[in-house]
């Protein structure tokens, strides 16, 4: 499963980066989103996989029953998911504004700071 997920991460990163290298701004946003999925999965997989045991401690105990999934990568990813939502929203607003002002989607047309 680790190998399979590693390949999935590779594909997500590759597709995300490919989209980020396009001239179209909307593709940039989609690439960004794919890339963050890839990054989240990367942390998740690199932290070690445990099937079906969330890091929760039963009532009255002080330790979760082993084996349990590593909580630290999960905390990192949870933060990353919400942050990447904020980033995506900001990117889309930026594209929205840029298209509104310049009337083009082509990054190569945005060569001057004046319009």
């Amino acid at each position: 499963m680790e190998i399979l997920l590693a390949i999935v991460v590779g594909c997500l990163v590759a597709t995300g980066l490919y989209m980020m290298m396009r001239r179209s701004m909307l593709k940039l946003a989609i690439g960004l989103s794919l890339l963050s999925h890839g990054a989240n999965l990367l942390i998740f997989t690199a932290g070690g996989l445990t099937r079906g045991q969330p890091p929760l401690i039963p009532q009255g105990e002080t330790l979760p029953p082993a084996p349990y999934a590593d909580p630290l990568p999960q905390a990192l990813i949870l933060t990353a998911i919400v942050i990447s939502f904020g980033l995506l929203a900001f990117t889309i607003a930026l594209i929205y504004r840029a298209c509104h002002v310049t009337g083009t989607d082509d990054l190569d047309q945005l060569t001057t700071t004046e319009t």
Binding site: V82, F85, G86, A89, I92, A93, Y96
Partner: peptide, 13 residues
């Protein structure tokens, strides 16, 4: 904060 941020962004758009 999360509620405010999300609603603010989406409603603005």
């Amino acid at each position: 904060a999360v509620l405010g941020v999300t609603v603010s962004i989406l409603m603005t758009l």
